[in-house]
Design a protein around this nucleic acid. Structure first.
Lengths: 137, 137
DNA sequence: AAAGTAATGCAACAATGTTTCATATGCAAC
DNA sequence: GTTGCATATGAAACATTGTTGCATTACTTT
């Protein structure tokens, strides 16, 4: 609760119930969420547009990052505090084709890649699809 | 020309002008294309729905594969003939933030990744964003 | 408490993707 | 070549997703 407000304040964002709710949804759900997921989780509490804008703001401020998915965009919390200036995301995303959840594997880093001459890499996004431990019984 | 028909026939698809045009657009453009890109390239020749269905069919038959992108889905030709049964895509996709093009780096393979216990990886999709040789002058 | 700034809700719109069904087309068999 | 069948297409309608402008509301600073 108090932690949420602190996170918002650190990123120079006003405390509003929508932002608190969106942020706490990310924290409690743990996995990557699409705009639709949030709309479902928050019910009729907020206008669709407000949720879109909240996501956009959080993205810009470095509170969440994009997670590429084969059926649309999702978002997940940044763990190591990212800032407006620099984002650091070199971890792997895993999508389970059984339960459909996509999660950040914070401790699994994307390995070094050798690119041909002339390519200047800046951001990396690795999605691995398969079966997660929960569904792999 | 004849090659297009052969490709379609190999995958048990009827030869239609739409399929020929979509396929030849992929071949000539070389980079990954979104549905909108194709709609733009093909003009008013075909109904939007038909292009959607063509993409879906090509995906299922293993003629093209999905390319994850931070602003939506794109598609690119499968180089090593994939089939309906098995797809093999372990190459890297590179998106240039200057010209906006996304390309398959067919020769750059995604390195081995060590996943925690219980994860069963099946498909890999690595998108690297940055500057491509053409824009990096 | 007042003023200024930022966030929200609403409406309208734009873009993207899907479904149904009648029609047209490709293809194989004759 | 013609016929018949299976499949692909176009059109309309709809569903979903994302964006923009503007008036109202709510936070913040003084």
């Amino acid at each position: 609760m108090e932690q949420l407000r602190k996170t918002l304040k650190v990123h120079n964002l006003r405390t509003t119930t929508c932002r608190e709710d969106v942020l706490s949804t990310f924290i409690s759900k743990k996995n990557a969420l699409s705009h639709g997921d949030l709309e479902g989780a928050l019910g009729e509490s907020y206008d669709r547009v407000t949720i879109y804008r909240t996501l956009k703001t959080f993205l810009e401020k470095g509170i969440i990052h994009k997670v590429l998915d084969d059926e649309g965009l999702r978002y997940a919390l940044c763990s190591h505090s990212c800032s407006e200036e620099k984002h650091q995301h070199d971890h792997i995303h895993f999508k389970c084709n059984t339960c459909g959840e996509t999660n950040c594997l914070e401790n699994q880093h994307i390995p070094e890649v050798q690119l041909p001459q002339g390519y200047l890499p800046e951001h990396f996004n690795l999605l691995i699809q398969g079966t997660c431990p929960k569904c792999n019984n």
